[in-house]
Every structure is written in structure tokens, then in C-alpha cells.
Computed example of a mutant assay.
Amino acid sequence: MFKSIFYEDYIVDSKRETLGRTITETDVVMHAGQTGDFYPHHMDAEWCKTQDFSQRIAHGTLIFSVGVGMTAGAVNPESMSYGYDRLRFIRPVFIGDTIHVNVTIKEKRDHPKRTQQGVVTELVEIFNQHNELVIVCEHLLLVNKKDA
């Protein structure tokens, strides 16, 4: 579905929240295969029993990717992803945890070189089933202006 949302239409402090998604062992194994990240923290259940968390943890990049994907809804032909800033892995996510994502429009600013576009910053917060923050970052959107 396509819905045009222009720079002027974004409202600072507006929020949206996703439904939940449970992280599975298949997610972890497939991510390891796709990225080549086979560190024991993710793959070796016996070794992990000797570590602080006592169990395997999902890759931070997996949770980031899944979380970002969960926020993708209707396609907005007036915007595109411009990148991510301030990405932090706050807490581990374990196999069987369920994550959900809150997105808040944090800021809007003119693009310094592209006068027909602005930059919208979304605060992306990924939480586990205990409502504990596990990942936080800022998603930058490059958005067309109405009168461009």
C-alpha cells in the first residue's frame, strides 16, 4: 500500500508501536549463516552456561534488523531511509524472548543541501516482553517537501 506523507505531515512527538515478535533459534541460526557471525555467545549453549547470562544471546544485529523490519508498514513514496545514528545494544535478547518496537518522531530539520527535502529523525526503541529496553537508535528519513 502506498500513502504519501510529506515532510510537513510529520508531527514531532507522535508515536507508533508494533505488535510483538518472538525470536526463535531459527532466527539466530539463519542470521549466523547470513553474516558469518558464529561466535559462541550465539551458537554454543554449553559454553554460554559458563558465562554471565547462562544462555545463548541473539545477535544485536539480528534484533536491530528484525526490530527495524517490524516498523516498516505502508510504503511512503515521499521518503527513504537516510541511515541510522546512535545505535546501542542495551540488554541481551534471548531465544524465546518477544520484542516490540516504539517509534517516536523526535525531530524535523531542513536538509542542508537538498532544499526540496527535509530530514525526519525517528527515535526507535526495541523492548523485550518485560518492557525492558534492549536496543535504541535514531532512524533518519529523507522526506520530500510538499512545495518542492
Results as ranks from 00 to 15, higher is better:
Gly33Leu: 09
Pro40Ser: 13
Ile99Leu: 08
Ile99Trp: 14
Leu19Cys: 10
Ile90Ala: 03
Gln51Met: 14
Val136Gln: 15
Asp37Thr: 14
Ile23Gln: 06
Gly60Glu: 08
Thr22Arg: 10
Gln129His: 13
Val124Cys: 06
Lys106Glu: 14
Gln34Arg: 13
Arg109Asp: 02
Arg91Tyr: 12
Asp110Glu: 12
Gln34Tyr: 13
Gly73Ser: 09
Pro92Arg: 01
Asn76Gly: 13
Glu125Asn: 08
Val68Pro: 00
Glu132Ile: 05
Thr18Gln: 02
Ile57Thr: 04
Val93Thr: 09
Ile135Tyr: 02
Asp85Gly: 05
Ile63Leu: 07
Glu107Gly: 00
Asp27Gly: 05
Asp110Pro: 00
Thr26Met: 04
Arg21Thr: 07
Glu8Val: 03
Asp147Val: 10
Asn131Met: 07
Val143Asp: 06
Glu17Ile: 12
Met30Val: 13
Tyr39Cys: 09
Arg88Gly: 03
Ala32Met: 08
Cys48Ala: 15
Gln117Cys: 11
Val75Lys: 12
Ala32Trp: 13
Ile11Lys: 14
Met70Tyr: 14
Thr22Gln: 11
Met80Gln: 10
Ser4Val: 04
Gly69Pro: 09
His31Lys: 00
Val12Arg: 02
Val93His: 11
Lys15Gln: 14
Phe89Ala: 04
Asn128Val: 03
Glu125Leu: 09
Gly96Ile: 04
Tyr7Ile: 09
Val101Asn: 11
Arg109Asn: 07
Pro92Asn: 03
Asn144Arg: 15
Gly67Val: 04
Met70Ser: 11
Asn131Trp: 05
Gly33Met: 10
Asn76Thr: 03
Thr71Trp: 07
Gly60Val: 07
Lys15Ser: 09
His41Tyr: 11
Lys106Ala: 14
Gly96Gln: 00
Phe89Asn: 05
Ile57Gly: 02
Gly73Pro: 05
Gly60Thr: 05
Asp52Trp: 09
Gly36Lys: 09
Ile57Cys: 04
Leu142Met: 15
Trp47Met: 02
Ser14Arg: 03
Leu62Val: 09
Val119Ala: 02
Ala72Cys: 11
